[in-house]
């Protein structure tokens, strides 16, 4: 019944329910650019804190935040673990022939902070926006139709393709297929991937046909009544204030 943990699915139940999704998208984009350009540690700390505050204000479920950050930081761990050894600079740690530099560590922490700040803010602003509303908003912002369709249908059909994969894989198992490291296994898995591609292509054709039958002409509509109101303006002004604060911290 629920939309699961996906940010693009489910009803809009976050604390930012009144803000126009276009403003949210623009805010998230501008915030991402500003956060990535920051280098001063106080500014970076502030960016992460603002992202965290956003998540709290938007009332994003803790589990959703945790899962996203876990996925991100598992990847980031790699950066933090390798970057100090890859950058030259003041020696921090020495291990036989390998040297960890202070500059490398600082850079790694910077990247970690930037990535977390951006993901937190994305969650705060876009979690819970229904996929059709997001697609509609992106179209109204002038993003090419093709890109919007790609996003929208990827979200919708991931499950269908996943289901197809499971069915095919089960049918293989039913005929006693067990993956090993041999030619037969690689070839069979190759057929599986090939068949998935063929099937998804054919399904895409049928889906498009069904959409045409219901009058689809390339535009995605949604229930969301996209109209800018005073509250959206106020949100944008407040957002600009926050960003100006970050840039001031950076320039200090």
């Amino acid at each position: 019944m629920s939309g699961g943990g996906r940010p693009l699915l489910g009803g809009d139940r976050t604390g930012l329910v009144g803000i126009d999704p276009r403003i949210r998208l623009l805010s998230a984009t501008v915030f991402a650019f500003v956060a990535v350009s920051l280098e001063a540690i106080p500014a970076l700390v502030a960016a992460v804190l603002i992202g965290a505050a956003g998540v709290v204000v938007a009332r994003v479920p803790a589990a959703a935040v945790f899962h996203r950050l876990l996925a991100l930081d598992a990847l980031m761990l790699l950066v933090v673990a390798t970057l100090p050894f890859a950058m030259p600079g003041e020696t921090l740690l020495q291990w036989g022939g390998v040297v960890a530099s202070r500059e490398g560590l600082v850079r790694a922490v910077e990247i970690l902070a930037k990535a977390n700040a951006v993901v937190l803010m994305l969650l705060a602003l876009l979690h819970g926006v229904p996929a059709p509303t997001l697609a509609h908003a992106l179209q109204r912002l002038g993003l090419p139709d093709r890109l919007v369709h790609l996003l929208f249908f990827t979200v919708r059909y991931l499950d269908v393709l996943g289901g197809e994969y499971v069915r095919l894989r089960r049918a293989m198992t039913a005929r006693a297929f067990r993956p090993r490291t041999d030619r037969h296994t690689w070839r069979s898995l190759g057929w599986l991937v090939g068949m998935l591609l063929v099937r998804s292509f054919e399904r895409a054709e049928r889906v498009l046909a069904a959409m045409k039958c219901r009058g689809f002409d390339g535009r995605l509509h949604s229930f969301a009544d996209l109209r800018m109101r005073a509250i959206d303006g106020a949100f944008a002004v407040a957002g600009c204030g926050v960003l100006a604060g970050l840039l001031w911290l950076e320039a200090r």
Binding site: L9, P130, A131, R156, V207, R214, F216, S222
Partner: peptide
């Protein structure tokens, strides 16, 4: 195949797709 026809996340959105178009 009903799965070819249903592509919106929720039932209401799917049923309203035609009228909106």
């Amino acid at each position: 195949d009903a799965d070819d026809q249903l592509f919106c996340p929720t039932v209401l959105e799917d049923v309203a797709f035609g009228p909106l178009n």
